[in-house]
Nucleic acid binder design. Sequence first.
DNA 1: TAGGCGTGGCT
DNA 2: TAGCCAAGCCT
Length: 285
Amino acid sequence: MSPWAILVSEVMLAQTPVARVVPVYESWLDRWPTAPALAAATVADALRAWGRLGYPRRAVRLHQAAAAITTQHAGQVPRSPAALRALPGIGEYTAAAVGSFAYGQRHLVLDTNVRRVLARVVLGQPGSSGSVSASERRDADRLAPTDPAQAVRWAAASMELGALVCTQRSPRCAHCPVVSGCRWHLDGHPDLGARPRLAQRWAGSDRQVRGLLLEALRREPGPVPGRALTGLWDEPDQRDRALAGLVTDGLVATVPGSDLFWLPGEEPGTGRSPRGQRSVHADHS
DNA sequence: TAGGCGTGGCT
DNA sequence: TAGCCAAGCCT
């Protein structure tokens, strides 16, 4: 796998089950095998190829990252954590994962699975929450091998352990290779309360409306009148709010007052490079 | 820093 | 059935 392929996989796998990622990932890399290839496409192309993976802003940010890689790094995914971290949509975890799995560097790859494993084994707690703490980094740094190649293996192994064995709801302790040293298991699986985060209501949420609107725009080849979107949701205020949010987030383009909406990159009109017809958001960036 | 951000399978 | 859950990032 190329560093670009690894970067794409990490972005897609964030918050999305691997089984759903695989087909999109394969067709995506088949179409855009390098960052410059994606950068040459439109955001609309990226959003349609993203399909129903969810969190479509990831597709927009991946497109932005591809552009930055093309213009600022000669088309090559950067190696340094700082440069990776500076790319749109690349946070601490993804930068560490790309540095590790693409370039063989030693990093603390603290995704939700690794953090849960460490919380249970080291602290005897059912899980972790919030942002990564200094003590979590100390524990991870103490446990990870010093040698970079071994540290990469350790990172991959600890992620797998959390994803397949030390799972959130039904941990398979009988099959766990480190159960004998797991403080949480030895303590009898205490449930120290601390609910991670209350699940947000889905039905009737702005997220649901955004999903409906974007799905409709993905299906259309070009600009769509706002009135064509009204039938998708019966509360006009919420529909307008959701649409405005999509524009703000760079997922939808429009011209203020025009009542036309489209996926960024497929501007209506003359067909010439339409400077003034980018999204409202882009005009201020 | 808590909350917003999609989607669909699983229990 | 209605939550719960899945390799985060950003503001």
